[in-house]
Amino acid sequence: MFRQILQNGTLRTAVQRPLAQRLGATLPQSFLGARFITDRAKSIIEEAVKDNDLIVFMKGTPDEPMCGFSRAVVQILQMHGVDELVGVDCLQDPEIREGIKEYTDWPTIPQVYVKGEFIGGCDVMVQMHQSGELHELLIKEGILKADPDAKREE
């Protein structure tokens, strides 16, 4: 039922809520103060995460971010040499905007996924950038080609 992308621990909460997901289509969002991801949002998110090795759920587009945190994430990834960044503009779709928060169990946007795994939001990206972890991750996951010329001063 759940694809391979859900095997890691970060997405376990999404797996543990089958009831909420089944009810999601029929209950008002405010039911008991909880928000339930819609089936539609869930399938769009799952597909987006599966089809793209690197994807950013953000406000605005990579070319035109509509929020400073989203802008920062795009700029960091571009700085690392990611040319074709796939972004999902959550402002265009209220279901995705709320759904991604529940899907990841992370309350804010932007959210970065690499190879199906949630990496973090803006703060995590900034700190991984500073520590050099982000570069390592992008190379390891094949998002960037390791270039022999670039001797990183880390």
Binding site: D105, W106, P107, I119, D123, V124
Partner: peptide, 13 residues
């Protein structure tokens, strides 16, 4: 880092 942030976020869910 991710765990730390998640932990704080969970306080203010």
């Amino acid at each position: 880092l991710l765990q730390r942030q998640r932990s704080i976020y969970s306080l203010f869910k």
